Computed example of a mutant assay.
Amino acid sequence: MSCKIVIPSHKRHDRVFAKKLVNDPIICVAESQADLYRQFNPDCEIVTHPDDVVGLIPKRNWMAKHFRELFMLDDDVHACKAIYAEKGEPCRVKDRDLITHIILSLHDIAKLMDVHLFGFTSRISPVMYDETGFLSLSKMITGCSYGVIYNKNTWWNEEIRLKEDFWISCYMKYKERRILTDLRYNFEQKNTFVNAGGLASIRNQEEERRSILFIKKNFGDSILLKSATNNGKDKTKQLVEYNISCKFKF
C-alpha cells in the first residue's frame, strides 16, 4: 500500500496553502463542506468523512483507519525548509517533486523499520542541527506535518481537543518505544492564532491548559512542566503558557 499525502481541513476552502507544496495531495473534509472545497480546489482530490466526525482529533482517527498509510500536512503549512545549511537562514525547498520525495522516502524508511509514527523536526534554525545524526528514533513529532502507518497503537485520545501531536508521541513512545523523525527538514505554518477556521475557534489558553493536565494525568512523571523562572512565575502560570516536555525512563 502506498502512502497518501492528506491535508485535513475545516472551513478553509479558499486557504489550503499546503496543496501547493506536494504532488497529488488529497484534501479531507466533512461531507457538508465538500462542494465548496471542490469549487475552490479543482486540482485536488477531495475525500469526505461523515459530518458527525467533529474536530481534528476524531478526524485524524478516521483518516488513519481510512487511508491506513498516510502523511498528514495541515492546510496552513506554507513552506518546507532545510535546516542543515552550514550557516545563515534555513534554505526553503521549493520543488514539489523534491518535497514529495522527502515525505515518501521517510515513509519508506519507517515501513522498513516497522515504525508506525514518523515526521519532521520542530527545530527552525541551522544552529540547532546536529550533523552527526539526521534521523532520530527518540524525538517527538510536530503536529503540522507527520504520518502514520496504521496499527492498533496509532490512536488519538478524543478526550482532549488540542496538543494531539504531543499525545500520540507520548503514547507511541510508551507502546512501541520509537518514533522516526527526520531532523533535516521543517514544515512551517501560517500563524495559527490568526488564521480563521481549523482549530482557531477552540484554541485558547484554558483549552491548552486542560489538554496539558490531561496528558500529565495519563503519562505521570514522564511529563515535565517547566520549572519556575527567575521572574517568579510558578508552574501553574507556566501551564497557561504551554511549556511542557516529556522524558521517558527508557
Results as ranks from 00 to 15, higher is better:
Ala34Gly: 05
Asp35Trp: 09
Leu36His: 04
Phe40Gln: 12
Pro42Met: 13
Asp43Tyr: 08
Cys44Ala: 08
Glu45Asn: 10
Glu45Gln: 15
Val47Lys: 07
Thr48Gln: 13
Thr48Phe: 09
Thr48Leu: 10
Pro50Glu: 15
Asp52Cys: 03
Asp52Phe: 04
Val54Leu: 09
Gly55Cys: 04
Leu56Gln: 11
Ile57Asn: 07
Ile57Tyr: 04
Ile57Trp: 05
Pro58Asn: 05
Lys59Glu: 11
Arg60Thr: 03
Arg60Glu: 03
Asn61Val: 03
Met63Cys: 11
Ala64Leu: 04
Ala64Pro: 00
Lys65Gln: 14
Arg68Gly: 01
Met72Arg: 02
Met72Lys: 09
Leu73Glu: 07
Asp74Met: 11
Asp76Glu: 13
Asp76Val: 13
His78Lys: 14
Ala79Pro: 04
Ala79Arg: 05
Ile83Phe: 08
Tyr84Ser: 00
Ala85Asn: 06
Ala85Tyr: 02
Gly88Ser: 09
Glu89Phe: 05
Glu89Asn: 09
Pro90Ile: 08
Pro90Glu: 13
Cys91Phe: 10
Lys94Val: 09
Asp95Trp: 08
Asp95Ser: 09
Asp95Gln: 12
Leu98Ser: 06
Leu98Met: 06
Leu98Asp: 10
Leu98Glu: 14
His101Cys: 14
Ile102Cys: 07
Leu104Cys: 09
Leu104Trp: 06
His107Asp: 02
His107Gln: 15
Asp108Thr: 04
Ile109Arg: 03
Ile109Pro: 01
Ala110Ile: 02
Leu112Ile: 12
Met113Arg: 15
Asp114Cys: 04
Asp114Ala: 14
Asp114Tyr: 06
Asp114Leu: 00
Leu117Pro: 00
Phe118Met: 05
Gly119Gln: 03
Phe120His: 07
Arg123Ser: 12
Ile124Met: 11
Ile124Lys: 11
Tyr129Glu: 04
Asp130Gln: 08
Thr132Pro: 07
Leu135Lys: 03
Leu135Thr: 00
Ser136Pro: 04
Ser138Trp: 06
Ser138Glu: 15
Lys139Glu: 08
Met140Phe: 15
Ile141Val: 12
Ile141Asn: 03
Thr142Cys: 13
Gly143Ala: 11
Cys144His: 15
Tyr146Met: 05
